[in-house]
């Protein structure tokens, strides 16, 4: 546990030292939101909830892929090798997933803030706690599945294209569930309606998390 804490601290420090990457991601999400805003050339509150929702999650998906893709290329392979001699690979992947979850939460929070600022919120009776819970589950799922895929892609050359190709289909079930739950939250439906979907989301998160932790020890050896 302590080791994981140290590793997460290391990730934060690394991020802080390479601030351009972090700033780049923040700017990425802000400018994507703004591009969407301009290309729909809207006054506020003109999108239907369906479009609003789908657009929001697509923006988050692309941000997540871009943000997490760098989690293994940021460090030189020699340094990664050094970590592997010190700690078990499970702890490394867990700390990376936790860190990426936090990163995703920050990005999603910022994205959500700006998105609602410029696009407005469709519908009056939005179920905010459910939406935020959904955002949290999404951040965990994205972080868990994309971290492993980033590890896989970093082993190959041309890893940027590969990252996108490998991760889209893998993330899709998660994304569909997220879109469905957040649509329910937007429409202010009763929470019991979304219980099934939230259960499935939790299950997908658990599967992806467990698989990442199980498979990563095989990955780093190569």
């Amino acid at each position: 546990m302590q080791q994981i804490g140290v590793l997460i601290g290391k990730e934060f420090r690394l991020e802080w030292r390479q601030r351009y990457a972090l700033n780049g991601m923040l700017l990425y999400i802000v400018s994507t939101v703004f591009v969407c805003f301009l290309s729909f050339s809207l006054r506020r509150n003109q999108l239907t909830p369906m479009v609003w929702n789908a657009l929001f999650w697509i923006i988050l998906l692309f941000t997540a892929i871009n943000a997490i893709a760098k989690s293994f290329v940021q460090e030189r392979s020699g340094r990664l090798l050094y970590y592997y001699t010190l700690i078990s690979p499970q702890k490394i992947i867990l700390s990376k997933i936790l860190y990426n979850t936090l990163l995703m939460l920050v990005l999603a929070g910022l994205g959500f803030g700006i998105y609602t600022l410029v696009m407005g919120v469709p519908g009056q009776d939005m179920d905010m706690p459910l939406f935020l819970l959904n955002l949290l589950l999404g951040a965990i799922g994205f972080a868990a599945s994309l971290t492993l895929v980033a590890g896989i892609a970093s082993k190959a050359e041309n890893s940027a294209t590969l990252m996108a190709v490998l991760s889209f289909p893998v993330v899709l079930p998660l994304l569909l569930m997220l879109i469905r739950v957040s649509k329910n939250a937007l429409d202010g439906l009763d929470r019991s309606v979304s219980l099934d979907e939230i259960g499935t989301l939790l299950a997908i998160d658990a599967i992806v998390l467990a698989l990442s932790v199980m498979l990563f020890p095989y990955l780093w050896r190569s």
Partner: peptide, 12 residues
């Protein structure tokens, strides 16, 4: 690496 992705893909 592809074995790892294979397992992951089937699970999803």
């Amino acid at each position: 690496v592809s074995a790892i992705y294979n397992i992951f893909a089937f699970a999803v």
